[in-house]
């Protein structure tokens, strides 16, 4: 399964090569052109069906290849690795996890002081990253340095698998789910009525940096960001928003911390979904940020919207998503791309 290989690939912000090569292999036969820019964005073009217009309408769809994780910042005399976070990880989720260090995937564990040795107070305190370390089984700095370098990236060693009820678990669904959906979309039809730029971006998790330069280069007329997004539908004490609901359909962002969705594009998605009976939902506004936050500010501005697959426990070592949401996102977008010109004549 494509999502499985994408989820198990390692690609932290700034080191997306493994994911990029995997995607490239998948899309090479599906697109007309591709290139990799100076930051490492993979920009693909699937040309539109009719070439009547001098400059066909350009639609950009972005999904980011990078995931959150860790980076080795120092090697102790004892051989243990000190690390910093790459992107927004929650300290509470790190202890007692298995990780893969460097491009050679050296296995290691994030150790924790045994509960027996903890003072009463410590049991209720979150350990901060600068107090943690990775143990790769070595006993000296020299030994460690034969396998690991300062600056090596560290990813979680989470395996992908299926759960009951059409759910799957794995790591990095934010945003490999988006990458997989974009690949499916490119696979779905010979062509769409617009020039479709499928852009697999880098460095989203550390500041939406890949999308920024890619959007400048592509100069799209409209843009969509595909995401694996926050889903918080577990039971709560108060009647509050679940952000999104697993199995509730493709999640449309109206506004988040990085942008307001273009109202016309939201209308397009909603009308397309209603007309074709595709389940959809609105994501809780003002939560998170996506590549659309930079794309919509490119040059003179680009009408943009984000659509997502709800994922439980994102930015932690293990996530869960529903394959039905994934399929609904692909279906909704495929229909919306076809409907776009009728709802919105040439730019």
């Amino acid at each position: 399964m494509l999502l499985q290989s994408l989820s198990e690939a390692c690609g932290l912000s700034g080191n997306e090569a493994e994911v990029r090569n995997l995607i490239l292999k998948e899309v090479q036969g599906l697109v007309d052109e591709h290139r990799i820019d100076s930051l490492g964005n993979l920009i693909t073009l699937k040309r539109c069906s009719s070439t009547g217009a001098a400059r066909p309408r350009r639609v950009m769809i972005a999904a980011h290849m990078d995931e959150v994780g860790l980076m080795v910042t120092h090697i102790e005399k004892s051989g243990h690795l000190r690390f910093s976070k790459v992107g927004g990880l929650d300290d509470r989720t790190l202890l007692s996890k298995v990780v893969l260090v460097g491009n050679d995937r050296v296995p290691g564990v994030i150790g924790a002081k045994p509960i027996h040795l903890l003072k009463e107070k410590e049991r209720h305190q979150v350990v901060e990253t600068d107090q943690m370390y990775i143990d790769i089984g070595t006993s000296s700095k020299e030994e460690t340095e034969r396998a690991v370098k300062r600056g090596d990236y560290v990813a979680f060693a989470t395996r992908f698998s299926r759960l009951e009820g059409g759910l799957v678990k794995g790591k990095a669904f934010d945003d490999r789910a988006g990458c997989a959906a974009l690949i499916e979309l490119l696979r779905g039809r010979g062509s769409y009525p617009s020039d479709l730029y499928g852009v697999f971006t880098v460095q989203e998790e550390i500041g939406l940096r890949g999308a920024r330069v890619a959007a400048y280069a592509v100069e799209p007329d409209y843009a969509f960001a595909f995401e694996g997004t926050v889903c918080d539908d577990l039971p709560k004490k108060k009647d509050l928003s679940p952000t999104t609901i697993l199995g509730g359909g493709a999640a449309i962002t109206l506004a988040d911390r990085s942008f307001f969705a273009d109202k016309r594009l939201v209308k397009l998605l909603v009308e397309t979904a209603e007309k074709n009976g595709v389940p959809y939902q609105f994501k809780q506004p003002m939560v998170g940020a996506t590549d659309a936050g930079r794309i919509h500010l490119a040059r003179e501005g680009v009408p943009s919207v984000a659509v997502a697959v709800p994922c439980r426990y994102i930015h932690s070592p293990v996530n869960i998503l529903s394959l039905s949401d994934f399929e609904n996102l692909v279906r909704l977008m495929s229909l919306a791309l076809v409907a776009l010109p009728t709802l919105w004549p040439s730019p």
Partner: peptide, 8 residues
Amino acid sequence: IVTHIDEK
């Protein structure tokens, strides 16, 4: 901006 409408 409205983020949630509760049962009540």
